[in-house]
């Protein structure tokens, strides 16, 4: 069984979950724990938005099937079976990405990879809300990463040098 792809997300859910499913797809091989929690977060978001239209139900059932299968396949991965370890895993990964982007930014390296790192780290900080309220620090980093990704992107498009 393969993961329900980005193209199959119904229109009623696309705006809310597409970005998290994309991060999941990008991490399926690189870090299956990150992929698992991105899909879990997308599942929860989607269920809160639309679980009654036939298209949404069909998508949600296939996403749930895949999540259950992933959890079984990752039976030796404690971060999937214990959400406290899972939370630490996602948090470390998000912060590592954030620090990479921040260091690159401060070194004057502005590129698509820096924008993407800021953006992905902020999305993973969204995913962290699965485990409860965010700490003040993470909340601050999440806002900064979202703003910075938009800002650098705007500068690159308009030809300005980011400050």
């Amino acid at each position: 069984m393969s993961a329900p792809g980005i193209a199959t997300i119904p229109p009623s859910l696309k705006g809310a979950i597409q970005k998290y499913i994309r991060v999941a797809v990008e991490h399926d091989k690189r870090d299956p724990v990150i992929a698992y929690y991105c899909r879990l977060y997308a599942m929860q978001q989607a269920m809160a938005i639309d679980k009654s239209s036939p298209e949404a139900r069909q998508y949600l059932v296939s996403l749930m099937d895949f999540l259950e299968k992933s959890k079984n396949q990752l039976k030796d991965e404690q971060a999937v079976h214990n959400e406290i370890i899972g939370q630490a895993h996602v948090e470390n990964y998000a912060l590592k990405l954030f620090l990479y982007a921040d260091n690159e930014d401060r070194a004057g390296h502005f590129g698509k990879n820096v924008i993407k790192a800021f953006l992905t780290s902020s999305l993973l900080m969204d995913v962290l809300t699965t485990f409860g309220d965010l700490s003040e620090d993470i909340e601050k980093n999440r806002k900064y990463a979202k703003w910075k990704a938009l800002y650098i992107n705007k500068c690159i498009q308009s030809g300005e040098t980011p400050i």
Partner: peptide, 29 residues
Amino acid sequence: GSAIGATGSTQASAEQDELSQRLAKLRQM
């Protein structure tokens, strides 16, 4: 017509409950 509608919505809410239960089970450690 209304009887069919009621059956349809009962079925839909049963499926929604099933998804919620599966989600809760998935998150059990």
